[in-house]
């Protein structure tokens, strides 16, 4: 996988998760700036999807294609669903949902890197 995209996705989602964790302790809703970070993370995930598909078509390696694309798509939908589910309740619970969504992306991203590496 492209290292830069992976680093971008992980940095942005870990940052969003950290902010959400602090806001959760302070019992505050997620602010606009955190949503901006989430939007950037989502942009990075979208770039990753396109790049991942291009890499998959071009690779000679034995990457499990169905699994790999499944994770790329899962990564793409996790943050938007989390963000909208969170916005419906601007409370500590809504903040918790953003934290969980960001952590979900981190977990999926780590697995995605594993799946790619397993085929190389």
């Amino acid at each position: 996988m492209n290292t830069w995209v992976v680093v971008a996705v992980l940095t942005l989602t870990v940052l969003a998760a950290a902010v959400a964790a602090v806001q959760m302790v302070r019992d505050q809703p997620i602010g606009d700036r955190t949503f901006a970070v989430l939007a950037l993370a989502e942009a990075a995930v979208l770039v990753q999807l396109v790049l991942g598909l291009v890499l998959l078509v071009g690779t000679e390696n034995d990457v499990d294609a169905v699994l790999f694309v499944g994770y790329l798509v899962g990564l793409l939908v996790a943050l938007p669903i989390g963000a909208f589910w969170s916005l419906a309740e601007r409370s500590r619970a809504g903040t918790g949902v953003v934290l969980l969504a960001a952590l979900t992306v981190v977990a999926l991203e780590v697995r995605l890197v594993d799946i790619w590496a397993a085929g190389v």
């Binding site: 899962g74 309740e89 619970a93 969504a101």
Partner: peptide, 28 residues
């Protein structure tokens, strides 16, 4: 709502992940 909102999100993630996983395993 409230704590239930975070719970629903995690359950949703596991519902999607477990469904995708088992369909993938049974199909292949």
């Amino acid at each position: 709502s409230g704590a239930g909102r975070t719970l629903v999100f995690v359950y949703g993630v596991f519902a999607a992940a477990a469904t995708a996983r088992s369909v993938f395993q049974l199909a292949t």
